[in-house]
Amino acid sequence: MSEQEAVAALHWNNNISVATITLICYEYFLLLDKEVMYVWKRPWSLMSCLYLIVRYFGLFLALLWGCWGGLLYMPQSVSYDLVVLMEWGFSVYFCFAEVILIWRLYALYNRSKLLLYVLLGLFIPIVVVLVWANIFLYSRPSAFSVIEIITPDAKYCTLSFKMGPMPAIYTSIPIVCYEIFLLVLAAAKLVKHLKDRKKLNARPNAYVLAIVHHHFVYFFLNLLNQIFLVVLWDHVSTPAMSLSELFNDTVPFILTPRLIISIWDTHAHDKCVYVSTKFEDCRCLTSPREFERHEMGTRVV
């Protein structure tokens, strides 16, 4: 890499770092009031714990990615360990995000234990694939390393890949297939739900629509994320790599907490009698739609 290319790469890295930190901080403060309302002021539950994990662990990873590389100088020896930590951390974050999707499907299918066990059983091989990929791709100096670039004006560290993108492609295939399976289950439930509601001349359940919509959004954005992760292993131009890193370092950490909050928000503004309970109790999906009339002290369906 020539000195001019190194300087251009450093500028790209710093600009992307500023954009990453700005987006993540803006998103954090944008949802803070609803987080206080739906998490900190209510009894904790499984979904509350999952939300806090993806919220703050994602915030930590995004800020670490934003600071690493050039915005804050870190020695080469430290940088390699940090990148390995961030790659493993991203996989852990992905696993928690998948657990949230599985839990949402569990709610959609009337808390079917059989479906839950099937989804978790199929998810275990995905975890094994992620562990293997992190060991093979990111934890071996023969495949991946960090190099220090020194210019007259600055010095910084950057990634260096010593193999092609094919192993990353092979790793992404089972992950994408599992995402397709989750998406098909959500779509099948939506079709059945719409048919049942049409027979009753009733409006579709807002929660079913929201959950299935989130599955579609998460699938397509995660598909893009897998593509961009593969792109990073190929020898692409600095702008393409920087934009891929911007997407990977922001969208997953913004999307998952926002999807959880949006379901809670829908639940809080509904007139269902179970609005005082946590959404993950699932009763607003499995029970008839009831409404409260406080002034009469009665309920009507």
Rank of each mutant, 00 (worst) to 15 (best):
164 G>I: 04
151 T>E: 15
118 V>I: 14
59 L>V: 13
279 F>P: 02
195 K>C: 05
244 S>K: 05
235 H>Y: 00
264 W>T: 03
72 L>N: 02
54 V>K: 08
206 A>T: 06
202 A>C: 11
207 Y>Q: 10
293 R>Y: 10
197 R>T: 02
71 L>N: 12
50 L>G: 15
50 L>V: 11
181 F>T: 08
42 R>D: 01
136 F>Y: 07
227 I>L: 11
188 A>S: 11
9 A>G: 01
231 V>E: 11
171 T>R: 05
61 L>E: 12
271 K>C: 11
275 V>M: 11
288 P>I: 04
170 Y>E: 07
98 E>Q: 09
176 V>K: 05
5 E>G: 06
12 W>G: 04
284 C>Q: 15
118 V>Y: 09
60 F>Q: 11
219 F>S: 08
225 N>F: 04
83 V>W: 07
237 S>L: 09
15 N>A: 12
10 L>T: 03
218 Y>I: 12
15 N>R: 13
142 S>V: 00
79 S>P: 01
66 G>W: 08
241 M>W: 13
16 I>F: 09
80 Y>Q: 14
27 E>D: 15
298 T>G: 03
202 A>M: 14
22 T>H: 01
184 V>L: 04
248 N>T: 04
37 M>Q: 12
150 I>W: 03
270 D>T: 06
238 T>R: 15
220 F>Y: 05
70 G>L: 02
10 L>N: 11
18 V>E: 09
192 K>S: 13
181 F>W: 13
197 R>M: 08
38 Y>V: 04
30 L>G: 00
70 G>Y: 06
269 H>V: 07
60 F>W: 12
100 I>W: 10
18 V>N: 13
245 E>M: 05
26 Y>R: 02
267 H>M: 00
244 S>Q: 04
240 A>S: 15
200 L>P: 09
19 A>I: 00
273 V>H: 05
77 S>N: 13
264 W>Q: 09
182 L>E: 13
78 V>Q: 08
72 L>C: 01
38 Y>M: 07
126 I>W: 12
